[in-house]
Design a protein around this nucleic acid. Structure first.
Lengths: 329, 329
DNA sequence: TTTAATCCTGCAAACGTTTGCACAATTGTT
DNA sequence: AACAATTGTGCAAACGTTTGCAGGATTAAA
């Protein structure tokens, strides 16, 4: 199939390339009659401007990139879904790259981004990332960076985050208001800032009530969470509530509780922070504080657009996390 | 930050642009000494070739596109994950577009693909797609098309599919071998070819055993599946096994069974076709026939590469679906 | 010393757009 | 009738590569 270019159209019509170009862009210099002729021919020939030529000429590239540990998973896929939607609506192409939580792959993905001369970049840091040097290059080149979920420390970057503090606080308040006295609280990897933030906010509230016993545990996997839960529920003095910092932990907790035939909410209450998909699978549905990837994606995109249209100072933005009532509390 | 081009390097070194270009490509015409000088400068200056210029010159574009109803969900996200991995390894950029099961959006996504002059396209048809006309254009332009999951009828296209027949057959055989006599079998939307295939293969096997009662049901949502299950398990004569065609259905079935406190596997056996994530959440874990999106993604990519390297006739490929034993049967 | 072969390097065109500038043709003003 | 203003169009350069071809410099063969 022959490719249609401005040149081809100009030859057919006996016009110059520049006239055709201007006619298609509705330039005031061109007469109405000519515009009409050009547009009609372009339509029937199904002319599509060559995006590479345009990019080369304009030194721009309507491509955004998104680097994420993994596409699959409850949180990231909905985040990506939101960003894709917005990118498409705003006429940007989205390039998604997985880092597999590997600092090397992350680095080479950044290289791919530079090669592609992208216009903006969304990043969820890999758990192995230690240096921000590679990201500095983008800042120097004035390519907007928006970090999400796993974000760097400090105030040098744009970040959009789940309102970890607010969400954890809300969960703690809820547990207190329900008069729970012996709470097992399971958090993720202690080194992640997200864990620290959630843990700190949660502790501050829950420790207000002096007569509440809380057992703080940290873990690295669903399997860990499962083991911890089994341990606590094999004891004489069983917890009357379990708090889960994430979906990953919730799965492990539920596994153990079901295996031990602990009844929810009769024997124990369960509350989790979650994207929302998982809690609805259980019976009764788990009460959770929503940490929506989709919402966060929309927020991230808004920030990106601000940056692209002449940005302001780096800032840290938060989504809000509402309580979604299930039957587990 | 100044952008480095061949021209810049050539000026610094007092060489011509073409010599620099050839030196970087290790062209035999260029002397070793010159190559060394050029490469060293290019390294220190962190030269990156302008991909738009290359694409324009070569009239090629190492971009693959993937159109899918939704990024999130157990099946698609793992498919995409596999395709992204392979694309990256093979130096292709992947552009992902969501159709939201809307024929109009699908069409405009195809338009975006044409605009971007992509090299190849993976498609999972939207449920609303009626005409294949827009796809024909790609065939005419010699742009490889690989359909997956929801594929068009006929033999005109490349398709990679879950081995629906084999998987459904395997499930049926398993139920028979376990001596189940009263089986509730829930399938998805009756109009989808995937449903018809699975249903047909399943029926053929299960009907071999004359004394087995099977209740065939079709449904459109998790909610439907839940209702159907509730209905059957409110009867006197309860099924001794439930077969679920998909994750979506499994969720509904499990909801009802749990609510009715039907015990698995004591009161009833459950078997599903699944991507594998969901079955492991339940206690006991659900026995399933694996329909892996990840595997399918790898297969799709392999086919795409074949097409890109001078293709053969369109063909239909299948993954295999192994049985993964849980405790539900 | 001439001629041929070998080795390097550079010129220039091409890919498809966009856009500043020039200019021809038309119209309007004295 | 001469000149200015307006209108519509085209020329040519630029974006950053790649590559066929030509040609200069060096070395080897006659």
């Amino acid at each position: 199939m022959e490719v249609i270019t401005l040149k081809k159209i100009s030859e057919v019509l006996g016009l110059s390339i520049s006239t055709v170009s201007r006619a298609l862009k509705n330039h005031p210099d061109i007469s109405l009659a000519t515009k009409k002729r050009v547009n009609e021919l372009a339509d029937t020939l199904e002319y599509e401007p060559n995006i590479n030529a345009i990019n080369l000429r304009s030194k721009k590239n309507r491509v955004l990139s998104l680097i994420v540990p993994s596409i699959s998973g409850f949180f990231y896929d909905s985040f990506i879904s939101a960003v894709e939607e917005e990118s498409r609506k705003n006429n940007y192409t989205l390039m998604i790259l997985q880092s597999s939580n590997d600092a090397e792959i992350e680095k080479s993905s950044l290289h791919i981004c530079r090669q592609n001369r992208i216009s903006g970049l969304f990043v969820c840091l890999s758990t192995q990332t230690t240096s921000m040097a590679a990201f500095e290059k983008f800042k120097e080149a004035d390519i907007p960076l928006v970090f999400f979920d796993k974000v760097p420390e400090g105030t040098a970057y744009n970040k959009v985050c789940i309102a970890d503090e607010q969400a954890a606080k809300l969960a703690a308040e809820l547990l207190l208001s329900k008069n729970k006295k012996n709470v097992l609280s399971i958090f993720g990897n202690e080194n992640l800032s997200i864990t620290r933030t959630r843990n700190k906010a949660y502790q501050r509230i829950i420790s207000l009530q002096k007569d509440v016993v809380t057992h703080n545990e940290f873990c690295n996997s669903t399997e860990d969470a499962k083991k911890i839960t089994r341990q606590y529920f094999s004891k004489k003095q069983k917890p009357d509530a379990v708090f889960c910092m994430s979906d990953e932990i919730l799965i492990g907790v539920m596994k153990s509780l079901n295996e031990l035939k602990v009844s929810i909410p009769d024997d124990v209450s369960v509350i989790s922070l979650s994207d929302g998909y998982l809690p609805k699978l259980y019976t009764p549905e788990i009460t959770y504080i929503e940490t929506s990837g989709y919402k966060l994606g929309k927020l991230a995109f808004t920030k990106m657009m601000q940056c692209l249209n002449g940005s302001a100072e780096p800032e840290e933005l938060y989504t809000t996390s509402p309580l979604i009532k299930g039957g587990s509390l």
